[in-house]
Design a protein around this nucleic acid. Sequence first.
DNA 1: TATATTTGCGTAATAAATACACAAATTAAT
DNA 2: ATTAATTTGTGTATTTATTACGCAAATATA
Lengths: 224, 224
Amino acid sequence: MKNKIKLTVDAVVFGYDSGNISVLLVKRKYEPFKDGWALPGGFVLENEDLEQAVQRELSEETGARINYLEQLYTFGDLGRDPRGRVVSVAYFGLVKPNAFKLTASTDAKKAEWFDIKKLPKLAFDHKKILKIAIERLQGKITYEPIGFELLDKKFPFSDLEKLYTTLLDREIDRRNFKKKITSLKVLDELDEKVSIGRGRPASLFSFNKKRYFQLKKEGIIFEI
Amino acid sequence: MKNKIKLTVDAVVFGYDSGNISVLLVKRKYEPFKDGWALPGGFVLENEDLEQAVQRELSEETGARINYLEQLYTFGDLGRDPRGRVVSVAYFGLVKPNAFKLTASTDAKKAEWFDIKKLPKLAFDHKKILKIAIERLQGKITYEPIGFELLDKKFPFSDLEKLYTTLLDREIDRRNFKKKITSLKVLDELDEKVSIGRGRPASLFSFNKKRYFQLKKEGIIFEI
DNA sequence: TATATTTGCGTAATAAATACACAAATTAAT
DNA sequence: ATTAATTTGTGTATTTATTACGCAAATATA
């Protein structure tokens, strides 16, 4: 039996910046879908595992190096790729968009951030993949503190609040939200303040990852 | 670039019968791991999608036909299969063990149910796959009513209760549990009773799937 | 006929989630 | 320098959900 099934990886990388969620896309250099926008990704090499493949493709196509990356789903429908039978393992990543400069080289003409509310037409079944990734993002943010991956190391509380209102697409009561986050004791209040434009200056906070992992080990679950 | 990566599917199928959770395993007919126990599964054919591949392998190797089947995770580490680079998409299934008779033919010497507390040594990385599947089962049962997939169409309430105590591995207060399930209105009480051995006869219930999907569409989430 | 076993049910106590408003600190405008 | 506008920061009361808990009814078996 000759094996004609090919394996790719694709990455849905989300970024967040002051009220906007964006996703990283690349403009394709070659057929199929030449000049179309697509998720970064490509064929898995024989001597690398899946996560290495995603990181390599991301780095080659966009210059991005992603800290938070998890497997999303594997897409294997017949006819999803005009090049033949291609099964793709999709990954889900989070990053601070200003953490690196976008570049492009192999396979991709250029890489760009797109607001998830203003997306171009996407190649392959990438629209479907992105839809599933957005659902995962919204679901996951309510029970794991992955939101911190999208914020700077130090941030005012209002940034966290705004991130959540944006991601969940609904209003949040600031006092109740703070009460909940505070009760988890995963935030450290720093002896620093920032003043952005007018208004009272805000204390800065940082996320205490060590404390979070300890709580998680003890079986305590974060939930918004 | 020649593509040497091969793609398989594996299925973790759970069954439940009066207080015991079991998983479906097959005894391997060929190398590698000849005569060892493994999850049912095998190579994906070029003209079938992933779920078809799982159902085909399950049917060939065990005779099982599974109603509830969802994708679990894709395992692609280097060296997970001595035959070379093999990436496997694992699926997660639930079934009533007495719903079919086990058979075996292609690739598998025989198929058997194993209590998940008395497992044999498993081939490949199947121990790891099974571990992740068990975590998924325990996690999922608390927020989706998949437990009904493991029970008969008509069941006394105590069966449901016992299923949950077994799956979650802890005691449940019968009255509070019933209150919660009842408040969801996804159970229909039938005009039928069963008497099993001594004790007061129990009313039979059935799961109202239609009602559940309606609630789900309305955004109401099941939670134990 | 008595005993053991299983089902079926309600209420009180505690904990968690929600609703809600005003003062403090700053910048921008006059 | 004063005033207006803006943003941060905080507490309490109400409602809702969760947990804890025990006894009577219906049947099978001894």
